[in-house]
């Protein structure tokens, strides 16, 4: 693994060098005063092809298209110490009105940079809390649609075995998987949910092998917490639930639906706050949940016809209960066992 981290380090250094060279001279500080747009900078640890960062990036792009912001970003900052430098340089030179990004592994660096520039609002993806006066946090709180997906999965399985292939047992992964399991148990108390981890955020070939192992073990419905699982489901012809964004296009016949995260409610709320001068360091969790449109089920693309009608009715009723606040999906961040 040391070779890998060394490699990551070199990649990071090279890419940062390239990006900084590319960004030089882009700053035009006086421009936005005339247009009334606020200047937003995105700071991402991974390439924006990464699904989590991709959702945040998409919401910022949408805000730019809507004429709300002027958006620049740096991606692939990595986890080897560059985050704090990038944030400090941006804060000094571009002086953005708002910085959005993902903290997680760079948690301490982001918090140091935020403390050093208390006049700039920082809005970061994080598992930890907000810091007054200027660090607000968010995360993908999509356990509610994960629960609904689980309900459908429970109704679809004939073998009473469902397989989940997940990345690494961190809280944000665990609460999705646990909610999915709880949902499946609600519609099908007999169901067994198998869970395995690939110990990596990106290794689709291993995820696919893991998914094939689930199918061999009798699973006839899968939850693709990670990329690679849908491919296995399509190959073997079993139903599968996607994650994070609508992945139906990969296997239109087999991807039923799945939790979708939408960052636009969060971003629009923060932009309004910044414009009004009322930015508050808070946990923005609610804006990534069902009631405010931050979490939804993906479009069925016609596959709802394959789901038993009574299950669909139950899901719709549960969806309404969640929206109206009458049902709260339990948040369980403990590591799920292998057999549930």
């Amino acid at each position: 693994m040391s070779k890998k981290s060394l490699f990551t380090f070199f990649v990071t250094v090279l890419m940062i060098a390239g990006l900084l060279a590319g960004c030089a001279g882009n700053a035009a500080p006086e421009e936005q005063a005339a247009t009334g747009k606020i200047k937003v900078f995105g700071a991402f640890a991974t390439p924006i092809e990464e699904p989590w960062d991709g959702v945040v990036h998409d919401a910022l792009l949408k805000a730019q298209e809507d004429g709300l912001i002027e958006y620049t970003f740096t991606e692939d900052i990595g986890y080897t110490g560059d985050m704090e430098r990038v944030l400090r340089e941006v804060a000094e030179q571009q002086k953005p009105d708002l910085i959005v990004g993902d903290a997680f592994v760079n948690e301490e660096a982001v918090r140091r940079a935020a403390a050093a520039y208390p006049e700039i609002p920082f809005v970061f993806g994080s598992e930890l809390g907000p810091v007054t006066p200027n660090l607000a946090v968010f995360d993908n709180w999509i356990h509610e649609p994960a629960y609904l997906s689980g309900m459908i999965a429970g109704g679809l399985t004939k073998s009473n075995t469902i397989g989940v292939v997940a990345a690494v047992p961190i809280p944000e992964v665990n609460r999705l998987v646990n909610a999915f399991i709880a949902g499946a148990k609600e519609t099908n108390p007999e169901v067994t949910v198998l869970v395995s981890f690939i110990n990596s955020f990106f290794d689709p070939a291993t995820a696919k092998e893991q998914a094939l192992a689930h199918i061999s073990a009798g699973a006839d419905v899968l939850f693709a917490e990670r990329a690679g699982v849908i491919e296995a489901a399509a190959e073997k012809g079993v139903f599968v639930f996607s994650n994070m964004s609508d992945q139906n296009a990969i296997a239109p016949e087999w991807v039923v639906t799945g939790p979708v995260w939408n960052m636009t409610p969060t971003i629009e709320y923060v932009i309004a706050q910044v414009k009004a001068g009322t930015f508050t360091a808070m946990d923005l969790k609610d804006f990534s949940m069902y009631a405010l449109g931050g979490a939804t089920l993906a479009d069925f693309h016609g596959n709802d016809a394959k789901v038993p009608a009574e299950i669909l009715d139950a899901v719709k009723a549960k969806e309404e209960a969640i929206k109206s606040g009458m049902f709260r999906v339990p948040i369980d961040e403990a590591q799920p066992g292998a057999v549930n």
Partner: peptide, 23 residues
Amino acid sequence: FLSVAQLGSFTFGIVAGRGWVCI
């Protein structure tokens, strides 16, 4: 093999250290 046989797609992280295993 990973992209055209096993997965039918390409994504960053697709090799995931397999080269180092070969070393």
